[in-house]
């Protein structure tokens, strides 16, 4: 059960999120939709990093979801909400297959192996024009169907409406991710990360749990992909390339991965900097440079991410304010 303070904080947060799109311009609303989708992407990535493995194929998993969902609607006429779910399942299935070779490796080998696996998938999209559309990808993907309540018709071409749709899907997904982390399974992920030999010696099947984390993370990445594909209306292999993966990595690293709000903080802060400051100043060309510099500086000087700033500040204030003894553990 959540404490009252946490519930209150969530309530305020959701109230703010509900008001937010009405304060934004049309193009900012579109960015807000993508931001919400990216929150799911980076949070699902974090679930995998709980086991201590860093993949470079996560964005490709998002692409698998997007491609699968788009093809199901285009070719088979599956309704969009069902196809999105199927996209997530497709990503999970691909992850389950890939985990057989990939989880024979650890650390660097896994990192590079996942990179290679992702590149293979991307090259398949590029090479096989039927059904994947080749380098140009898939276009004119069906949009999310309008909902007609009789008195109220919701048109999901409107960014505001899609924003709320994405917000609901992503919030529900984050809740599930949160529950998984707090469950026995999630605790086992942590155990595998910090003490894999010890975990194994008490009967934990590391391979199976790593696979499970990879499959769950990919499922939610696939859902994010479906949300993305049916919103933008087009997908192509370049969209799910290494550059995009680098951004996910940057969000996770800059935000920190110890808590669920760490990566969210990372993606929100960097997107705001990116869209409002850099684009506003017309610095599009130097954007990668600034991202690179932020990445290096945060690895060097803020190794635990933005999420560590709050507790650190609080601890310092407390020490200065009253007695030096109070710097205890804090439930996230």
């Amino acid at each position: 059960m959540w404490r009252i303070a946490t519930r209150l904080r969530l309530l305020i947060l959701f109230a703010a999120l509900a008001v937010l799109p009405y304060l934004l311009s049309y193009s900012q609303q579109e960015i807000a939709v993508l931001l919400v989708i990216n929150v799911l992407l980076v949070c699902s990535y974090r679930l995998l990093t709980l086991t201590g493995e860093w993949s470079l194929g996560h964005v490709v998993m998002m692409g698998v979801g997007a491609y699968a969902s788009a093809l199901l609607t285009k070719r088979l006429g599956v309704p969009v909400p069902v196809s999105m779910l199927a996209g997530g399942l497709a990503a999970a299935a691909v992850a389950a297959i890939l985990s057989v070779p990939l989880f024979r490796m650890k650390g660097f080998y896994f990192l590079i192996g996942s990179f290679a696996a992702g590149e293979i998938i991307r090259l398949i999209w590029k090479r096989f024009t039927d059904p994947f559309g080749g380098p140009k990808g898939l276009k004119r993907i069906d949009a999310f169907p309008n909902i007609d309540f009789g008195f109220l018709e919701i048109d999901f071409y409107e960014p505001v409406n899609y924003y709320f749709l994405a917000l609901i899907v992503v919030s529900a997904s984050l809740y599930v991710l949160h529950r998984i982390e707090r469950s026995r399974i999630g605790l086992t992920f942590h155990a595998i990360h910090w003490q894999d030999r010890l975990a194994e010696s008490v009967g934990v099947d590391n391979f199976r749990y790593r696979t499970l984390a990879f499959v769950i993370a990919s499922f939610f990445a696939g859902i994010a992909g479906g949300l993305y594909g049916h919103y933008v209306g087009a997908v192509n292999p370049t969209r799910f390339g290494v550059d995009q993966m680098v951004y996910v990595l940057v969000w996770a690293i800059v935000g920190g991965t110890a808590t669920l709000h760490g990566p969210i903080l990372g993606v929100v802060v960097l997107t705001v900097i990116n869209e409002i400051v850099l684009r506003g100043l017309g610095l599009d060309t130097v954007r990668p440079l600034i991202y690179g510099a932020i990445l290096i500086l945060s690895v060097l000087y803020l190794p635990d991410g933005l999420e560590s700033l709050g507790p650190r500040l609080r601890a310092r204030l407390r020490r200065r304010g009253r007695d030096p003894a109070a710097a205890g553990g804090r439930a996230a």
């Binding site: 860093w54 660097f108 990192l111 680098v246 990595l249 940057v250 690293i253 060309t285 130097v286 954007r287 990668p288 440079l289 991202y291 690179g292 510099a293 932020i294 990445l295 290096i296 690895v299 060097l300 190794p303």
Partner: peptide
């Protein structure tokens, strides 16, 4: 990068990704 991050290979790798973006942009400029 690599000397300050000597005890942390993953951080070194991530920093090198950042450096890659910087080099690319400088050459583009």
């Amino acid at each position: 990068m690599f000397r300050p991050l000597r005890d942390n290979p993953l951080s070194g790798l991530i920093a090198s990704i950042g450096f890659l973006l910087i080099l690319q942009t400088l050459v583009v400029l």
